[in-house]
């Protein structure tokens, strides 16, 4: 298994690569499509809301908003297909660790972490690169995304569906699309925004998805299992020693940017 890139910033801080460029681009794409779909979709769901009427007015009416919604829906759909293809191919070729797929360890981690939260344990469990909270959100996003794509396509091409399947699936798709959107929105604003922005552990924001790097200290604190994997015992990077085996000595240009943003 390939190890992630590890760099040392001019100030001595050791940074571990967490997200590759395509993943960071995907995140930005997801933000843009999500916001566009919510802004054009929710006024249709909450069709008695005056605020919703105002928003639809900004788009020049319902028809325009629906065109925008469908365009971003298609973008989301293509994104979902590409993402899954990349993940499946990566898994088949063995080039990806599948570190976001849930495993039984996650159940144990969740149980131990909750016991720790409630004071039954001194320390939390040593969590992997992506902990059970992050995996829950990722799997939820993928499954919810599939529901949205499938129901959205039904609503976009109802007559096509009715040629092959019972037409009663069309109103079913309508309620599924509407409710799944609500669920996704709530999980996002409550769970993701807490985890990545508001949680005192990362506040004011977790930059790793923007810069692509996480500091070794953060990794040790929040993803100790991954830290131990990268920096086996006794080879920790932040006790004044040169480096763990994987640390890249020279500072690549991207790390300069990282450093300037990190300060």
């Amino acid at each position: 298994m390939r190890s992630p890139e590890i760099i040392r910033l001019p100030n001595g801080q050791v940074m571990v690569k967490r997200f590759s460029l395509p993943r960071r681009f995907e995140h930005i794409l997801a933000i843009v499509t999500f916001v566009a779909l919510i802004v054009t979709g929710f006024p249709q769901k909450f069709d008695t809301s005056n605020f919703g009427h105002w928003v639809l007015g900004l788009f020049g009416g319902l028809d325009n908003a629906r065109y925008v919604h469908r365009a971003f829906g298609v973008v989301f759909c293509l994104h979902a297909i590409t993402h899954l293809m990349v993940a499946i191919l990566g898994a088949l070729r063995g080039t990806m660790r599948m570190s976001l797929l849930p495993v039984t360890q996650d159940l144990r981690d969740a149980w131990q972490n909750l016991r720790y939260y409630m004071g039954y344990r001194e320390h939390g469990p040593k969590l992997p690169k992506f902990d059970y909270r992050q995996k829950f959100e990722y799997i939820g996003l993928v499954l919810g995304g599939l529901v949205m794509v499938a129901s959205g396509l039904v609503l976009m091409y109802p007559m096509l569906l009715a040629q092959f399947l019972p037409a009663s699936l069309i109103p079913a798709a309508q309620v599924a699309h509407s409710n799944e959107a609500m669920l996704a929105f709530l999980v996002l604003v409550i769970w993701h925004i807490y985890g990545a922005v508001l949680s005192p552990e990362v506040f004011p924001i977790d930059r790793s998805i923007i810069t692509g790097y996480v500091s070794a200290e953060e990794l040790e604190e929040h993803h100790a299992q991954e830290y131990d994997r990268l920096f086996p015992h006794g080879h920790g990077p932040h006790h004044g020693h040169a480096a763990a085996p994987a640390v890249v000595a020279q500072t690549p240009p991207v790390a300069q940017q990282v450093a300037s943003r990190a300060e």
């Binding site: 939260y117 409710n179 609500m182 669920l183 709530l186 999980v187 807490y194 949680s199």
Partner: peptide, 22 residues
């Protein structure tokens, strides 16, 4: 969804509150 949405949100909010409490 009438069950799933409130239950899931309740669970997530509890998890957040426990985290803040700890």
């Amino acid at each position: 969804y009438r069950f799933l949405i409130p239950l899931m949100i309740l669970g997530l909010v509890l998890h957040i509150l426990l985290h803040l409490w700890r």
